[in-house]
């Protein structure tokens, strides 16, 4: 691929572009590396460069019920929220393919993307006012889960729609002329084609919900904290290496899970490509 047309077209102008991009990538790497580095200090306060090397703050986090509880709450909220947002986002993406009117399609599309634009603080205040009016929604995580699910729906919708747009549009009419009713078409034709994209959407939605902090500020019952909220609280107090150790742990977990997932899906895609190439040449 040394002869890429874009590379040739850019000529020497690609040097400044590369320099800008590489400098920019520092914005991504440096803060993360600082977080990781400060977590192994032997001191009980945060210092950079770290003083010595120990894993004491890691064991501190893992044995601290406050951090572990927050982690469990986040898992629960993100899990429930992901299920809801995947279901709704997928329904929306499927509905989009079945609408004929151009205006209807464009409104549905906008509707499913607009939650990305909702400012979380204002939305959290709104949900909070709802909870003031409905006692059943106080002292539990229902509103938090629903709100997070709404914020994550666009990501699922985008992923699944892109999967559906790659599918052959003739398959669905074919299935229905062969006598399949619409639920069977969805179950047998659409879902198998987009299951990978649904999974990707689910992973993305989980990550978004797991990381979201603002809604938890307003909506968690007293004494309950999600992990990002616990981090926010900790970052406004005396900075301790436990904070960066927890940050490192959760980031490593995310990198391991998401990296593992994308390796897996890449390999699957590569295998599918190989198979289709084989089929084409055979």
């Amino acid at each position: 691929m040394t002869d890429s047309p874009l590379r040739r077209s850019l000529g020497w102008y690609r040097l400044p572009i590369l320099v800008v991009a590489l400098v920019t990538s520092l914005l991504f790497y440096v803060p993360f590396l600082v977080v990781v580095a400060t977590s192994w200090t032997e001191t009980s306060y945060i210092i950079f460069p770290p003083d010595g090397f120990s894993l004491q703050s890691y064991s501190g986090v893992l044995n601290d019920w406050e951090w572990m509880d927050a982690f469990k709450v986040s898992l629960r909220v993100a899990g429930l929220g992901t299920v809801i947002s995947v279901a709704l986002g997928t329904l929306g993406a499927l509905a989009l393919t079945r609408l004929r009117s151009r205006t209807a399609r464009s409104w549905v599309r906008t509707l499913f993307i607009v939650p990305m634009a909702i400012p979380p603080v204002a939305y959290a205040v709104g949900l909070y006012s709802v909870s003031l009016r409905a006692e059943a929604l106080q002292d539990n995580l229902a509103l938090l889960v629903l709100g997070e699910a709404l914020l994550a729906v666009p990501y699922v919708f985008v992923m699944v729609s892109s999967g559906l747009s790659q599918a052959d549009p003739a398959l669905r009419p074919v299935a229905s002329t062969l006598g399949a009713a619409w639920p069977m078409v969805i179950w047998r034709v659409d879902l198998p084609m987009i299951v990978g994209h649904m999974l990707a959407g689910a992973v993305f939605a989980f990550a978004v919900i797991f990381d979201e902090v603002v809604l938890s500020v307003f909506l968690t019952p007293i004494g309950v904290k999600t992990l990002p909220l616990q981090m926010l609280t900790a970052s406004q107090e005396e900075l301790s290496p436990q904070l960066t150790a927890a940050s490192t742990l959760v980031s490593m977990l995310a990198v391991a899970l998401l990296g593992g997932y994308s390796l897996f899906s890449n390999r699957r895609a590569a295998r599918a490509r190989r198979l289709s190439r084989k089929a084409a040449t055979a």
Binding site: F32, M231, L243, S251, A254
Partner: peptide, 10 residues
């Protein structure tokens, strides 16, 4: 893949 919280702390 890392949360806004972690990056902001960084």
């Amino acid at each position: 893949w890392t949360s806004v919280m972690v990056r902001t702390i960084g």
